[in-house]
Write a protein that binds this DNA or RNA. Structure first.
Lengths: 209, 209
DNA sequence: GTCTATAGTACGATAGAC
DNA sequence: GTCTATCGTACTATAGAC
């Protein structure tokens, strides 16, 4: 009974190969071969390659985003009438993703999500990120009352970039730092990232330059 | 004499199509059709698809990285024995790319550069980013003497992420902010980004959480 | 639910005429 | 330097037996 479903094996193989070689460069043949399944099984369990891609994202992003919202709920409840501390909000944003995905193939897939070309990717992002964006931008607006709405959106955008790049590009950092930085200690990355993002979000608007 | 070289037309078309649809999803046939050239011309002027991709990156990244280094030279010369101000260093890092590429198809290509799967992409990054990384990390180390080397690399990594994501993902920001933020005013983006990154780089190392 | 077989199309690369 | 023609291969998707 520890034998896994064909459907799940296909999802697992697709996730890994999409992450390693990119979505467009991964054929259904490579996926079914890696999954020990038949080529036709992909069109039986899913309808098309595009539906399989969507299923890969949904399987992981659903739970992670759920956890983000729950962590935000918790710190908002604890803050009562006041706004939660900025680093609690940002930790709720980054921790479920970092702790949940770092070290798994899905990191690369999630890191590339926003940069993936084509309209399909934008649909995936729209479906999975809509409520997250609403809830967190509302929380941040309360925590950073001095910021204009425009500044806030830009700084959230930069923050998402730092997170996505860390998920997608770990190997690059290891190369550039000549091995001094690794993805090994996820809790340390979490702290570093929250510290960096909170400071960036709190920056004075610079009028010089 | 305003007629453009076939080789250049192929490069232009490849750049645009790679940016719009992704590298793997863009066929040489689509490129030569858009360039008004023959399919065989790509293998005559370049040797292969991979060499064409490399040429696309080199054509733009060479001059932009040159300008980054020149801006860094200028502010280091002006600072004399002292270290240049942090925002001058970071401006030298982001301005040539933002001002040079924003609004051109190459933005998307550059934004995706670090996330592109496969070993080939890592080679492109290695070739074009090596000296940039060395020079800027040395400058930042002098400007931020309180930071451990490890912290510095991580924060540079987050900074590259914010920049890359801004280059690659402008449309996402416009959607999430419901049109309130656009890529229109590049000088404003430059100021915002430098302010955000400098504050993040200067953050206190957080030991709580 | 899983297989074989195949239809129909597209790909990168090259040979060889001009 | 540019063309046509084509080789060999790979792709997604589906039809139909088991």
């Amino acid at each position: 009974m520890n034998q896994v479903d064909t459907k799940t094996r296909i999802l697992d193989a697709a996730e890994r190969l999409f992450a390693e070689n990119g979505i467009a460069a991964t054929s259904l043949r490579a996926i079914t071969a890696a999954a020990g399944a038949n080529l036709a099984a992909v069109n039986y369990h899913f309808q098309s390659k595009e539906a399989l891609i969507h299923a890969c994202y949904s399987r992981r992003l659903g739970p992670a985003n759920q956890e983000r919202l729950e962590m935000l709920d918790v710190c908002q409840a604890r803050a009562g009438d006041g706004a939660p501390a900025l680093d609690e909000i940002m930790d709720a944003f980054v921790a479920p993703v970092l702790l949940g995905f770092m070290g798994t193939p899905f990191t690369a897939l999630m890191g590339r999500m926003y940069a993936e070309p084509g309209d399909f990717a934008r649909r995936v992002v729209g479906v999975h990120i809509g409520e997250i964006a609403r809830r967190f931008s509302a929380a941040l607006r309360r925590a950073l009352p001095g910021l204009t709405e425009e500044d806030l959106f830009w700084r959230m955008h930069f923050s998402v970039g730092a997170l996505a790049h860390t998920l997608a590009g770990g190997k690059l950092l290891e190369i550039l730092s000549q091995g001094r930085c690794t993805m090994g200690d996820v809790q340390a990355i979490r702290k570093r990232m929250v510290a960096f993002l909170c400071a960036g979000l709190r920056a004075q608007a610079s009028e010089n330059l």
